[in-house]
Design a protein around this nucleic acid. Sequence first.
DNA 1: TCTTGCTTCTAACGTTACGTTAGCTTTTAA
DNA 2: TTAAAAGCTAACGTAACGTTAGAAGCAAGA
Lengths: 254, 254
Amino acid sequence: MSKQYSIGDFAKKTGITIRTLHYYDEIDLLKPSFISVSGRRYYSDDNMIQLQKIVSLKYLGYPLEKIHEYIHLHDWDLQESLQFQKQEMLQKRAQIDRVIRTLDHALFMMEEQGSINSTIFMTLIHNIHNEDEQKEWLKNYFPKDSVEQIYNLSEEELKELNSKMVHLFDKLKGVAGQDPTSQHVQALIHDYFALALEVYPGAFELVQELQDQEIEIEDNLELFPTPFSPDEEEWLAHVIQYYWEHREVDSNGE
Amino acid sequence: MSKQYSIGDFAKKTGITIRTLHYYDEIDLLKPSFISVSGRRYYSDDNMIQLQKIVSLKYLGYPLEKIHEYIHLHDWDLQESLQFQKQEMLQKRAQIDRVIRTLDHALFMMEEQGSINSTIFMTLIHNIHNEDEQKEWLKNYFPKDSVEQIYNLSEEELKELNSKMVHLFDKLKGVAGQDPTSQHVQALIHDYFALALEVYPGAFELVQELQDQEIEIEDNLELFPTPFSPDEEEWLAHVIQYYWEHREVDSNGE
DNA sequence: TCTTGCTTCTAACGTTACGTTAGCTTTTAA
DNA sequence: TTAAAAGCTAACGTAACGTTAGAAGCAAGA
């Protein structure tokens, strides 16, 4: 009545490879019901049911070791385990969603700008990647509401912002080293701050505070990477300084 | 100007472990800018930028080998690659969604039924898992519309159906071996067919056809696993046969 | 009965991206 | 000068098999 299948037949019937059956035998996960004197494995209908359990649990994302536990030591709170497993899967999906979102941003930028300086590009990916950590860090120094407000842009706004940023950074890198006081360099920096103001009206005060408090961004370089080399950074500092002084004069002059 | 960091400092600044830096050096992914006579590695700001690229691409799901290609052979269609990567991620997410859906069904069943015969449970998981393949197989023998109709239940309906099925299977297994013509056994089988009719009004004709055509379900056991042992299967066949004959008499008698 | 071809066996390495010792050398601080 | 800290290489471990390689068993035809 109960048939015996050679490993090849069993493999065909179940869709599981011979190698996998060998492996499951080796780790005591699924033992064939009978082994011939010459060492050949023969599987039964009962084995089919066992294998179905294994395949099902594997599909649900359990590692073989857990499955082994379940099958052998028969004290398992299945319900609790399934709930736990669901949480794990939800987390995985959330992570993948973040990656897809980043890819969307990246693709949007490429469509907008054509080709892109790869260093700038990677910096942006990095920023999107570390958004949450950046937020937490900023909350140490600024009111939480302000921080949330900065990051509280819609996907579309964020895409636009990133795209424009990339564009500006690209141009800035193009003129790096030139006279910091020159017309077109200052124009670029002006655009940059204009963009910042658009996103967050309190941008100027925020920069001011950063300077006043002498907050050591340098110690957290990995959180706020820039696409600029150290030389370029120094040059940029000069540009900004000049812009800053000039701006204040302007403001006062009004 | 351009600083040199010891591997420890570099690791702290970037958040990447020393071991990983060793590894990246080993596979020529990230070479330190300078190596002392005694063999110690020193990293530069330039290395930081390179590392940022690596980390970013890793975040986007690229394997190190692809990243290596990108960094060294500088002919990469970034846009196309990103699009491809997005497709990959979408697939992964779809797979995870299927698993989550299955877990939801399983949890729903547990809440409805309390504890469950694990064999029945696994069979159901297996069925949900192989839904699409089952559909394709059935389409070989039946009009596509009918097949689609059967599988075209809402999530909620499907949950209910599965839950009831589990309940019935459980009861059937409980009375397996008893007189196939007895009242309560026949009542269970009646419930079973009632359930089938509810889902798909043409269920009787479908079964009839299956019998007439002598379709070899046996060759595809892995597609349609049942929670019954061979003995139980045989007993079930008797029960169904009796029910079938009785039903026809009934129908004729009306 | 022998041979041929198919199936199965064990053993062992390869895969990915590092984590984790272990044992030894170099650098740094007291 | 010496002890502690940091760094080095080498090697194994991980998860779940895929992929040879070489030997042996098994069924069928000559």
